[in-house]
Each structure stands twice: as structure tokens, then as C-alpha cells.
Amino acid sequence: MAEPTIALEIFRYHPEQGEAPSFRRYEIPYREDWVVLDGINYIKDQIDGTLAYRWSCRMGVCGSCGMMINGTPRLSCAAFLREYFPNPVRVEPLAHFPVERDLVIVMDDFMHKLREVKPWLIRGQETPLSEGEYRQTPAEVDEYKQYSMCINCMLCYAACPVYGLEPRFLGPAAIALAQRYNLDSRDEGRRERQEVLNTEEGIWDCTLVGECTTACPVHVDPAGSIQRAKVTATVDWYKDVLLPWGKR
């Protein structure tokens, strides 16, 4: 009996050859324990070495292999072929990003936004090393831990319809990471980050669609983080208006 096969329809785009983007269909062996990334690696090794894509860890940690799989943003290392077999699987680069080549997207916009929210601990005054480390209780760690799990895979940006319509929107992962530091008891940089967060292109462009949270492979819940940021910014605003003399 012939070995079962499955078809991968892969988005191809080689701008230096001046070709318009197209889909190419590859028939590959079907293995029950293969993920889409295994299939793509098989194509690269056995059928067509010109295929370009990003990947690294194969285990959902590095965040490199995000792709649109049958229209849904997923890590290709976590999408099993058996979820789609015997139907063909359509693989495209992450939505809402410019394409560099084949499945490789240009991530400059995301990298820029990431820097804008200053995702590091900001201190008014560093305490000297001799005073020891900054200590936290388990409860203080729990405040931000969920948001620290982000692997920068950008699936949330591909899932977010607001980002698709308004590319200036700061976006789910950047806001979630800003909150990761805002909610850290060691951090004192919330005021600085508000300059970027509390703007129309920051948290206020979000209409709580929630697709970011659905797409997130590590359960960061960016939508929830944005809602929390909205509440905080609103409380700030009312404090400013109602208690203008109050020192925050």
C-alpha cells in the first residue's frame, strides 16, 4: 500500500525575480507525529531548497516560526498535520506584516514598537549593589508573571484586526510587555511608559476584539492586559481632573 501523503500549499514570493506572489503545492509524506514545520523542513531538504522561512527551537519557545496556517496565526511547530489531514494545508506568512521573501516577514515595525514601551526595569535611583537584590513576594511576582511569558512570536499582531486596519496601533504584545514592567514592584517607569501607552495609537485604539488572546500560544492574555491599562489610565485621568492638587 502506498504511503499516505498530504499537500502543503505554500506562499512563495521572491521579489528579486520580480514575480508576483503565488502558491506552490507540495505533496509530502504524511506522518501522524509531524507538525507543519516538519513538513516545511522536508520540502526544504528534499524538494525545493529555495523555500525561505524562520524557525529555530521546534518546541514553542523561540517564537520564530509563526505563520498563517489555513488562515489562522499559529506556531508551525505546534500545528500538527493530523489536525488537517487528509485536507491540504495552506501556509502563508503572518498577516498584516510586509513580506521579505516566501514565509519571512519584515518585523521592523514590531521591533520598533517593542523599544518604544521601554520593556526593562526603570528605577528613579539604583540602589547600590551592597544593599543586595530587589526582593519580591510570590504575590508581587504573580502580578506580572503571566505577561512576562511573551515569546515575541507576533501571532497576536497577525490576529489583531485593529492592527490590520491601523498599522500605527502599538499592538497587543508591546502593550502586554509594557504592563509586564508597569506591574513589577521593582519598576518605577510607569509614568514614562504612559507617554506611549495613553495615546490614541496606544491602548485607546484597541476595541477589545480579543483575537490576540485567542492566538497567543503561551497564554499571555494581551487583551486583558490592555483592559487593565485602560482602567489604570482612566483612574489617572480622574485623579488629575478631580484632585489636581493631589500628588501622585
Binding site: 509614568r191 504612559q194 507617554e195 495613553n198 495615546t199 490614541e200 485607546w204 485602560k230 489610565a233 482612566t234 489617572d236 485621568w237 480622574y238 488629575d240
Partner: peptide, 10 residues
């Protein structure tokens, strides 16, 4: 320092 009137509407 407030950039946005969104908090009131939101």
C-alpha cells in the same frame, strides 16, 4: 501630560 481625552469616553 495627558495626551488623550479617551479616558472620559471610555
Amino acid at each position: 501630560m495627558r495626551h488623550s481625552s479617551e479616558p472620559i469616553w471610555w
